[in-house]
Structures are given as C-alpha cells and as structure tokens.
Design a protein around this nucleic acid. Structure first.
Length: 732
DNA sequence: CGGCCGCCTGG
DNA sequence: CCAGGC
DNA sequence: GCCG
C-alpha cells in the first residue's frame, strides 16, 4: 500500500546495470574458505569500481553528481595465472573414428571444430523430447574461460536438469563436452552426490590419469562466476571418496586475503540472518518468507542513529506463518481453482498471430513435436498457454505454503534484489520483482533455464536471465554491487519512520541529516513524524502473536463492557496466521449497526476510556468520514513500555465482508483482487464490491457503480470468480 | 510508451 | 488541487 | 521490472 514517489527516474541506474557482469560471492553451501587470494582481490577491485558508479543517484533528490556512464569492469580479465592448467596437448587428442560421421555426439570434436554443437537430432536422440537446448550460444571468445578444455561429466548425460544446465553453461564458455572416455579429457566433473569409487567402477579403471582434473559440479560454475580457472584442489571441489594424492591442504594464504573484505563489509552477507527492526508495513514488503532485507549493516552505524533501545531487540527474521492448515486444501480446492480458471476468464486473448496457433485445444502437454518452426514458436506457444490459464492474477493462485518450494533459493536472491530496489525508491521495479517471486514461489518445479522462466507470468526477458543465472550459480552477480552504503542506510532508516516515506526521507538526507536525533531537532516535523522518530524502535519491531492477541483482547473487553454486542476482529497478518505482526488491526463492528453509531461509541467512549486507562498512548490519525472511519494510534500493555501501532477500524455491519478482505490482505493479494475486479467492470474497496463501474480515460472512475456485495467475504470471492481462500492462504 | 489499487489527508 | 502516505 |  505504500505508494511512493512514482515518478522517480531511474533510467541511469538501469544503464549501469546493463553493463555489469562480474564479481560473485560464494555459494551458500560452501564455506567461504578456500579461495584464491588473487581472485578475492580481483573481486574486490571490481566491486569498488562498480560501486562508485552504482551508488550515484541512489536518491534522485540527493545532489550527487557522478557522471555515471562508463563502468570499467565490463568483465573480469581472464585469469590463468595460478591455474592448474594441466590440459593435455592437443596433439594427444585424436578424435575417435565416429567423429568423421559427425552424426554422433560421442565424437570428440577436433580443436578446430571447437565447440561445435552436435546436430540437434543427436541430442534429441539422447534426451528424448528435448531438442531445443542444442542451441548453444557461445560467449564472446574473451570470456570463454574453458576454451580448449574438454569435460567429461559423471554421470555424463544431460537428463538431469541441473546437470544439463551445467553442461550447457560450460559449453557456452568454451568447453567441449566429451561423451565417451578419451585421452583428450582434461576435467572430470562429478555430481556432488556421486562417489569417486562409483566413477572408477563405471569407467573400469583403478585410477584416473594424472593429467585429468577431478572436481565436483561446483567447479564449472565457480569458474564461470569468476571468469577464471580456479584451483581445483579447493575443498568444495573435492569429489566424495577421493583422497588427494599429495598433501591435501591447499594453500592457506587464501584466508589471508579474505579478512580485508570481510572486515569492511561483513554486512554484505547475502543472507543476513535477520534484522533487528523491520519495516513498519509488514504487509507491504513482506511476504511471510520474506528474507530480511539487505539492511543489516554496520550495527554501530545504525546504533548511533537510533534512539536508545529499550531492551527489546527483536531479531525476527520474518513473519513466520504459524500452524497453517495446509492439508485441508486438496483436491477439492484444486478443482475449484481449475474450475474457476476455466469458467470465469476474461482473457486477453493473446493470439495475435493467428496463423500458426493450433488453438488452445486440449493438447495438455508436450507434443512439441514435428513443428519445424523454430523453438521460438514453441516458446511463444507455451507462454500464451500460461497466460491463458495461469493467473496473471495472483489472487487466483493457491498459495502453497511451501517454504521449501523448489525455487526458494532463487526467490531468496530475487528478494534481495527487490529489497535493494525498494531502498532506492523504485517502487515499480520492486513490485515487479515481488510479482515474479510470487509466481516462482508457486511454481511446482525448479526453474532452471531462461526459456522456462520466460514462459511464466510476470517474468520477462530480464528476470528470466537473472533466474537462470541464479539457478545455475546460486547467486546473482549484480547483487554484489547493490549493496548498502552509508547514505543508503541513512535513507533506509529514515524511510522507516512512521509518517515519512521515500520522499520525506530523501529530503532529510539531502538536508544533510544523518541520524534520527539530528532530524528530530533540526527538521520541521509533523506531529506524527515526531512520534514516529521518538518511538522508532518500538514501531519498527515485530509484535509477537501473543501480544497482538493481548492488545486485541484489551480492546475487546473494554468495548464489550460498554456494549456486549460489539465484536472485535484482529485482522492483518495476525488473521493470516502470522507469528508476529507489524501492527495491530482491530476491526470493530456490531450487528445491524451503521457507522454513525460505531463512530459515536468508539471515538467518544472507547477511545477516551482506553486513553484514560493508559492503554492508548498516542493518536496518530483519525479518519473521520461519515462512512467508514478509522483510528490510528499507539497502544501499550499495562506494565510494558513498548508502544505498538494499533488501528481501530470501524466497520458497519454490511461492509464487514469487504473490510475483512481489505484488512486481511496481504496487500498483493488485495491489489490483485482489485485489479481483477476492475477488469470485470467492477470495483472493490474496503466497503464493498461494486459492479457496472464506468471508467473513463485512464481508469478514472466515472460512476460509482452499484453495490453487489459487502457483507460476505465469501460472496465477494464468488462474484469475482476467485476460489475461496482462508486468510492463511492469502499470501502472495 | 505509459500504467502498475483505491482512498484519504495535509499542505 | 496534488503529492505523499496508508 | 512486466505488460499491453
């Protein structure tokens, strides 16, 4: 819901990004120890260059002048120095006879043939239905770190998607894939799960030739990442069950190089365990499995900006969804979704190219057969299929509460990109990332390739490329450049002040303020902002579920003492089952009661009473329209010093359904729902669902439309054609 | 290229 | 009225 | 960033 400055131009930044191409971090599985000193240094250097450029313009209001055009580090210089370049001489490698035919894949191409791609028919034979992946697009020669090398994989086929990806990538970077054992093999790449003994047995040898390098699947990706041949002796390249012939401990000077960077940017961990405070709008940036944003940085730095802590230092990672009755939804639920998808769609038929499309006909799967048309066609076809049935509307999507969705790792990294863009105030890009993450999260299988990703809704060219990179390397290079720098940190801190958004925060930054204290005394603040700063820590702390409940029951008890007919429903993330929340949403309603009475009782009796008792400690805003009204403020449990953000939402009885939807969220789910409504000529807001809404240019509303439903949450879902989802599943 | 939810409030 | 916040 |  937080809409920020939409008109910020971030074009320049995009320019920067488009040129970037390097510097990686370690995979999350491998300890970061055995790395080449020079590689680390190189990486740092590259980062420095990039950083200076990237940072420019973090905020459009900041008078930063960095002519940010050329980023030096286009690519890392190929590094062959400390490499183990034991590749056998070409002479030794004589192609097997089969090569002459050129028909089979097993022939080792001669050097001159380089990485010639085998005929697709060959691959098709090997891999069954796949034929497309034979198109290997070689990297520019300069980047081909594997040029001249020949890999033998074990297992040596591409049936496994992960391995297929590795093989493809390796070939793109110049490797020759040797299908059968031969002398010209320089490296044997073994799947992590495989044991050395198995390999030997399979090859029917009792040892490998000395000049053959034996490494795990990690090796190629690392090398590609660094655009350099790395030392294959590093621990995480060691094949299971293989004892290093000589001394096993690689060089230890690797370690020496590390601290330099580690010291200066330990904050830069890709996967921060958590953060002390969380954005105030849990709904907005936060999906339950949202990963702590990149914000955890120099503690000292933040520390000095913050008011003294009050002992509470909640280290929540995220809003963990609690006991989520995920079992109940099964066939019936799926069926409902399917049905809903088929029936009610108002699809934007994307079949612009009428010629080729064999329509949407039943052909559910595959038969990418005989189409002599280029793979492109297939791709397109696939995509439109998705567009048709899959939701462009995320509210249709069943939220598979899987935190162990096959794409979790990818999503986690994208999340960090999203965090980064969010911090830059690029709300739209952030939103795009969030949508993409959502579809990815719900995708049943791991997405490995660009084409695969491209076929999914909300994932376009650029994200698809990133996803492929992430899937393969388990990291995203650009992320390393997208790191928090002091100024950004300040901005980030300011943005979390209640009552201040990106614009205000930027303003403060450009006025030269660097701490909240400074803002407090020098900036002119609204009352809310003042409170927001004074209670910065409180307001940015997560509220444990149990405490949310307590606040709710204080309200409920007090209110029912006034009139037992009143009902208090705690909404927001609490209603979605979250283990902790960012604030407390109390929906207050009463059967057969309109807003006037609600208003009278709540604002004139309840609030004063709660204020007198010391429960309500601040009034931040009260919306006081004739109809729906709400009260925003802060509350404090007896005996506690901690202020919590609490909203009292007065809901007339016949709007309770819409209100429940609205105040239960999450916000993506809501947006999606509203967007869906608007495509059907309807309108959904906190009061109800309206139909026959007339919209003019833009989508400006010309007529209110007529109320269809407001009382029943379920009915609203129904009318919109969205399968009912309990609150816990409204997490997009 | 422009939209990307709908609504309220303060200035 | 619109930018900014929710 | 994605989409129409």
């Amino acid at each position: 819901m937080a809409d920020k400055d939409g008109d910020v131009q971030l074009e320049q930044k995009r320019q920067f990004y488009s040129g970037l191409d390097d510097a990686l971090t370690e995979s999350d599985e491998e300890p970061d120890t055995g790395r080449q000193a020079s590689v680390a240094a190189m990486k740092r250097a590259a980062e420095d260059q990039l950083d200076s450029g990237l940072r420019a313009n973090a905020s459009h209001r900041l008078p930063r002048s960095v002519s940010a055009t050329n980023l030096a580090a286009k690519h890392l210089p190929a590094m062959h120095d400390q490499t183990v370049d034991k590749r056998p001489t070409a002479a030794k490698c004589k192609p097997p006879p089969t090569l002459k035919k050129g028909a089979t894949f097993s022939g080792a191409p001669s050097r001159s043939m380089g990485n010639m791609v085998p005929p697709s028919s060959a691959i098709a034979k090997l891999t069954g239905k796949r034929k497309r992946e034979s198109e290997i697009k070689l990297m520019p020669e300069a980047q081909q770190v594997f040029k001249g090398l020949t890999f033998y994989f074990f297992p040596n086929d591409d049936k496994n998607p992960a391995r297929r990806m590795r093989i493809t990538k390796a070939r793109e970077f110049g490797v020759t894939w040797q299908k059968d054992w031969s002398d010209c093999i320089t490296h044997v790449i073994v799947d992590k799960v495989m044991e050395y003994s198995l390999l030997l047995r399979f090859l029917k040898r009792d040892r490998l030739p000395n000049n053959v390098v034996l490494v795990t699947e990690n090796y190629p990706s690392e090398c590609i990442s660094f655009r350099a041949m790395l030392d294959p002796k590093q621990a995480h390249f060691k094949v299971k069950g293989y004892a290093q012939p000589e001394m096993q401990e690689p060089k230890q000077q690797i370690e020496v190089a590390r601290p330099v960077s580690a010291g200066s940017d330990k904050s830069l961990q890709l996967k921060p365990a958590g953060k002390a405070v969380k954005a105030r709008h849990p709904e907005t940036p936060g999906t339950p499995d949202e990963h702590a944003s990149s914000q955890r940085t120099n503690e000292s730095q933040i520390e000095q900006m913050l008011p003294p802590r009050k002992g509470l230092d909640v280290m929540t990672t995220s809003e963990k969804v609690g006991p989520s009755p995920q079992s109940e939804s099964t066939d019936e639920f799926e069926a409902a979704i399917r049905q809903a998808r088929e029936l009610q769609f108002v699809p934007l038929e994307p079949e612009e190219d009428g010629e080729s499309r064999p329509t949407s006909s039943g052909g559910p799967e595959t038969d990418d057969e005989e189409a002599p048309k280029p793979g492109f066609q297939l791709l397109k076809q696939r995509k439109s299929k998705y567009e048709r049935m899959q939701d462009k509307w995320q509210c249709m999507q069943k939220h598979t509460g899987e935190r162990n969705s096959p794409n979790e790792a990818t999503v986690a990294i994208l999340q960090q990109m999203a965090d980064y863009y969010n911090q830059l105030g690029d709300e739209w890009r952030t939103r795009a990332y969030r949508k993409a993450m959502s579809t990815l999260r719900n995708h049943p299988t791991k997405v490995w390739t660009k084409a695969e990703a491209l076929a999914l809704p909300q994932i376009g060219e650029r994200l698809a490329t990133k996803i492929e990179e992430i899937a393969f390397t388990n990291r995203l290079r650009r992320l390393d450049n997208a790191r928090a720098e002091p100024t950004d940190l300040v901005l980030q801190t300011f943005m979390q002040v209640y009552g201040a958004g990106f614009t205000k925060a930027s303003e403060w930054v450009s006025q030269g303020f660097t701490t909240l204290d400074e803002v407090l005394e020098k900036a002119d603040l609204t009352d809310n902002q003042r409170i927001g700063i004074e209670h910065y820590v409180d307001f940015n702390s997560r509220i444990p579920r149990a405490e949310v409940e307590q606040h709710g029951s204080v309200v409920r008890k007090t209110l029912q003492k006034i009139d037992p007919a009143f009902e208090v429903i705690v909404g927001g993330s609490y209603r979605r089952g979250a283990q902790d929340s960012g604030d407390i949403d109390c929906m207050i309603t009463r059967p057969d009661t309109g807003s006037a009475h609600l208003h009278a009782v709540i604002l004139e009796q309840l609030v004063p009473k709660l204020a007198k008792s010391g429960f309500l400690v601040a009034s931040l805003a009260t919306t006081n329209k004739d109809d729906g009204s709400k009260w925003h403020g802060a509350s404090r449990l007896p005996g506690s010093e901690t202020w919590r953000r609490i909203d009292l939402l007065l809901v007339p009885s016949d709007e309770i359904g819409a209100a429940l939807i609205y105040f239960t969220g999450n916000d993506i789910f809501n947006r999606s729902l509203r967007l869906l409504a608007s495509t059907k000529g309807m309108r959904l807001n906190q009061r109800g669902l309206y139909k026959d809404v007339i919209r003019g240019k833009g989508r400006e509303k010309l007529s209110e439309g007529t109320l269809v439903e407001g009382k029943s949450e379920k009915r609203i879902f129904e009318v919109l054609g969205v399968p009912w989802r309990p609150p816990e599943h409204r997490i997009c």
